[in-house]
Simulated scan of single mutants.
Amino acid sequence: MSVNTILMIDDDVELTELVSQYLQTNGFEVHYSHHGRDIDTLIATHQPDVIVLDLMLPDIDGLTICKSIRADFSGAIIMLTALGDDIDEVTGLEVGADDYLAKPVKPRVLLAHIRAQLRRQSQLQLTHQETSIWCCHDTVKLDTGSRSVESHGQEVILSSAEFDLLVLLAKHAGNTVTRESLHEQIFRLPYDGIDRSIDLRISRIRKKLGDDPKLPSLIKTVRNVGYLLAR
């Protein structure tokens, strides 16, 4: 049985050691660093399945790191922050984070989110039997094998969570998918009615596909229900 690898980047030494020990006790291989330097080397060396990334680091901020690695790193990125401002969450998700937790975070809560991200990745890999999915009036092509997207023949770079969300919508193209259903399938956690993660990802996908946010034609918002992707 393979062991999932976690890479934790956080300058809080006490928290890092506590969380690392807890995750190791629960069967994970854990590596960590207290600064953001050499992030590419750390990823290449340890090949993590999930990166837990602090927003505030002494040398380089987590948002910059997330943005720099997102295109090449296909695993999940969970961002941590001690700040309570919503703009930090919005920005974190927009640069490609898959999940977001406020500090101080309890180890068992972080563990639940890590497992949810791993289940999401595993489940989507098992269910992606088809090679290509066409949608949006046959202008958008999703390749579930290579996890790539093309719009009008041009490559579109999506984060892992954005790709998974678009696949879910594409599988039900022409039909409304509720926000609750999308949230539960992406995060494997109950929807609390407040979390904006799905909405932020939809906004990000629209932007990347060139869909007009004020009058979208590709991903339509069904008020108080969810979203509908054009066939």
Rank of each mutant, 00 (worst) to 15 (best):
R37I: 01
D40S: 15
L42R: 13
A44I: 02
T45C: 04
H46F: 06
Q47P: 05
Q47W: 10
Q47N: 15
P48R: 01
D49E: 12
I51S: 13
I51D: 08
L53E: 06
L53R: 07
D54A: 14
D54G: 10
D54V: 11
L55S: 01
L55K: 02
L57V: 01
L57D: 07
P58C: 05
D59W: 12
D59Y: 12
D61E: 08
L63M: 11
I65M: 05
C66L: 03
C66A: 13
S68H: 12
A71V: 00
A71C: 01
D72S: 15
F73C: 09
F73D: 04
S74C: 06
G75M: 02
A76K: 03
A76L: 00
I77F: 11
I77S: 13
L80T: 07
L80A: 03
T81I: 05
A82V: 08
A82D: 10
A82N: 09
D86E: 15
D86C: 05
I87R: 15
I87D: 13
D88L: 07
D88W: 15
E89T: 07
V90E: 06
V90M: 11
T91S: 11
E94A: 09
G96F: 10
A97Q: 08
D98R: 04
D98S: 13
D98C: 12
D98V: 02
D98P: 03
D98E: 10
D99H: 07
D99A: 00
Y100F: 12
Y100L: 02
Y100D: 01
Y100R: 02
Y100M: 03
Y100Q: 04
L101C: 06
A102D: 09
P104A: 00
V105S: 08
V105Y: 14
V105F: 13
K106A: 14
K106P: 00
